[in-house]
Write a protein that binds this DNA or RNA. Structure first.
Length: 268
DNA sequence: TATCTTGTTAATCG
DNA sequence: ACGATTAACAAGAT
C-alpha cells in the first residue's frame, strides 16, 4: 500500500540511482498494466536514457530522453534494482540497462506502467486529474477544498482528485491525530477542526517520510522501510488500548472499506 | 473454501 | 451535476 511516504522514498531513490541509465531492452510480462500495446511500449522506451523521477500522489513520473515513464504500484509492489542473475521471482515489467543492471517491477495486485510522449504528459488522465500532493497543501487551500465539498471526511481524504497521496493505511492515524471521526460530514468541520486535520496529515505522514516509508514496502535494494508497526498509533490495532485514553480500538465499516478508530477520542 | 485486503475507474441509482 | 454504492480488474494470505 504505497502512499506518500513510500512513493516519495521511491522517487528519491530512482532519481538518485537510475539517472543516466539507458534502456537496452524491456520485457513486459503483464501487458494489461500498460496504457498502450506492449510492442508500442517497448519500441517507445528502448534506447531511452532515464532522467529525473518525481511523484504526484501515488504516481512515480520518470522523464526519459524519449518521453515519460509513469508507474503506479496500486495496492503495493516492488521496484528492484537487480541484475539478470538476481531477478526476483515475481516481476511484471523488466527494464534492462546498458550497464548490465535491470529494474524489475512487480505489483502484488493492480498497478500501472504507462508511457506518454514527451509533449503529451498533460494528456495523461490519471495524473492530470490529481489534486495537490498531501504534504504541499497549506491550511488555507485545505479550507477552500473542504468548503467546496459535501461528502464525509474519509471519502474526501481518499479522493485523489482533491488531495493526492493519502491511502487507506495512513488515514487511520491521520484522523486519530486530528481527533476526527472518518464519517464526519465535511460541512460540519469548524475552522479549528480543519487546522487539526491539517496538522494530522503532517503528523501522520512525516515520521514515515523521514524513515523511507513503511516496513511493508521495499526500497530499490530490497530493504524494508524504517517506519515499523509499533509506530502506527491505531491503524490495524483492533482491540488494543488507545494510546491517549486506553479505550480499546475499534474496527468499523466506512462504506466499502474499514477504519480503525478510538470511539472516545473520535466522536462523530 | 470463503473472505479479506492496501487502488482506480466506470456504471448505476437517487 | 453530485454523492453514495457496487462491481470489476491482473493476487495473495489466512
Amino acid at each position: 500500500m504505497p502512499e506518500i511516504p513510500e512513493i516519495a522514498a521511491r522517487a528519491s531513490e530512482m532519481n538518485a540511482e537510475l539517472r543516466g541509465k539507458t534502456i537496452l531492452n524491456l520485457e513486459v510480462l503483464q501487458p494489461k498494466c500498460l496504457n498502450i500495446a506492449a510492442g508500442d511500449f517497448i519500441t517507445a522506451l528502448t534506447g531511452a536514457e532515464l532522467k529525473g523521477t518525481t511523484y504526484h500522489g501515488k504516481w512515480l513520473i520518470t522523464e526519459t530522453s524519449q518521453g515519460w515513464f509513469l508507474l503506479n504500484l496500486g495496492m503495493g509492489g516492488e521496484i528492484l534494482l537487480v541484475t539478470r542473475q538476481t531477478l526476483p521471482e515475481k516481476r511484471r515489467i523488466i527494464l534492462d540497462f546498458t550497464d548490465g543492471s535491470s529494474l524489475a517491477i512487480n505489483f502484488w495486485w493492480f498497478g500501472y506502467a504507462h508511457y506518454m510522449a514527451a509533449d503529451r504528459l498533460s494528456e495523461h488522465k490519471m495524473t492530470a486529474q490529481l489534486g495537490p500532493n498531501a504534504m504541499d497543501l497549506d491550511v488555507d487551500k485545505l479550507r477552500i477544498l473542504i468548503k467546496s465539498q459535501r461528502t464525509r471526511l474519509k471519502t474526501f481524504l481518499l479522493d485523489q482528485s482533491k488531495i493526492a497521496g493519502i491511502g487507506n493505511a495512513y488515514i487511520h492515524d491521520i484522523l486519530f491525530l486530528a481527533r476526527l471521526h472518518p464519517l464526519r460530514p465535511l460541512a460540519s468541520l469548524s475552522e479549528e477542526e480543519i487546522a487539526h486535520l491539517y496538522q494530522g496529515i503532517h503528523a501522520g505522514l512525516q515520521p514515515s517520510i523521514d524513515k523511507g516509508g513503511a516496513f511493508y514496502e521495499l526500497n530499490l535494494h530490497g530493504q524494508k522501510g524504517g517506519f515499523v508497526l509499533e509506530e502506527i498509533l491505531i491503524g490495524y490495532k483492533e482491540g488494543q488500548p488507545c494510546p491517549v485514553c486506553g479505550t480499546p480500538i475499534q474496527k468499523i465499516k466506512t462504506g466499502s472499506n474499514s477504519s480503525f478508530i478510538c470511539a472516545t477520542c473520535q466522536v462523530i
